[in-house]
């Protein structure tokens, strides 16, 4: 039996009336703790949807401040926020959207010597970072701490995402040995990103967090989901845990967190 206040029942009514989700599902969301690393193109929609859904505690980590070039896609930040720390800017909107949610901000550069202290209090982590080194760091830290997480990346008209359940499903290093050399892949600063593409992928990542918290449906584990918004191709490839994975394989070689240095292009 779940006791909602009258206002909660009204606010979350469209969740509560979903068959096989219901009040129990909403209660699980309200007891959940999700950390979003990166308050940019992916983090913006993820933070807004999780806040609207009523996730009990949401952490938002980002060391940057809001710049004018962010506003074309980072929809949680407004023009008046220019120069404001992104974590603070995001938290302000989240509290305005849903005052019931506890928002924790981390205005820090997430790196090897602080990430474990940040992620350890959360049930699920969403990787919304914007570089390969950070994505591998999030992967390694979550795997070592045993925290499920969503990996995501976007560029131009394309997005890709996978969900990782430590010890149960393939991790990022099962598919990619290590970060590519610097400059091997262009970034959004160089070749651009359609704002709505980030919105779509961040929303998929938020959905994975909600599915994890409630147990609804099937997570995007052992799968890599790709889309191309220009052709509207949506593809889900199959992945498997890699016995040779340096992190979670039979003979792991990665035993501690490091800040990956991306070498120059090979």
């Amino acid at each position: 039996m779940v006791d909602f206040t009258e206002k909660q029942f009204e606010r979350y009514n469209r969740h509560i009336i979903i068959k096989d989700f219901g009040a129990e599902g909403q209660a699980k969301i309200m007891n959940g703790k999700v950390l979003i690393i990166g308050a940019g193109g992916l983090g913006s929609p993820a933070a807004l949807y999780l806040t609207a859904a009523g996730v009990g505690t949401i952490g938002i980590a980002d060391s940057d401040t809001v710049e004018l070039s962010n506003l074309q896609r980072q929809i949680i930040h407004f023009t008046d926020d220019l120069g404001t720390p992104k974590a603070t800017s995001a938290a302000t909107k989240m509290k305005a959207l849903n005052p019931e949610v506890t928002v924790k901000t981390y205005h820090v550069f997430v790196k090897a010597d602080n990430i474990q202290g940040i992620i350890q209090d959360y049930d699920f982590v969403i990787d919304c970072t914007d570089n390969f080194a950070a994505k591998f760091l999030v992967n390694d830290a979550c795997m070592m701490e045993g925290i499920p997480f969503s990996h995501g990346g976007v560029l131009q008209f394309n997005g890709q995402t996978m969900t990782i359940m430590p010890e149960k499903s393939a991790c990022l290093r099962c598919v990619f040995e290590k970060p590519p050399p610097r400059g091997a892949v262009p970034n959004s600063t160089q070749v651009g990103i359609l704002g709505s593409v980030a919105g779509l992928l961040g929303t998929v990542q938020a959905s994975e967090a909600l599915k994890f918290l409630t147990g609804a449906g099937e997570l995007l584990t052992d799968s890599m989901f790709f889309f191309d918004i220009l052709t509207m191709e949506f593809i889900k490839f199959k992945l498997e845990k890699n016995s040779e994975c340096g992190l979670c394989g039979e003979a792991p070689t990665i035993r501690e967190l490091i800040d990956e240095k991306q070498p120059d292009c090979d």
């Binding site: 990166g38 940019g40 193109g41 992916l42 983090g43 990787d127 919304c128 970072t129 914007d130 570089n131 390969f132 994505k135 995501g152 990346g153 976007v154 560029l155 394309n158 997005g159 890709q160 990619f176 590519p180 892949v185 970034n187 959004s188 990103i193 980030a198 790709f226 593809i235 490839f237």
Partner: peptide
């Protein structure tokens, strides 16, 4: 299928 790893966020 040939795809390219994406890092934008």
């Amino acid at each position: 299928h040939i795809t390219v790893m994406l890092a934008g966020g």
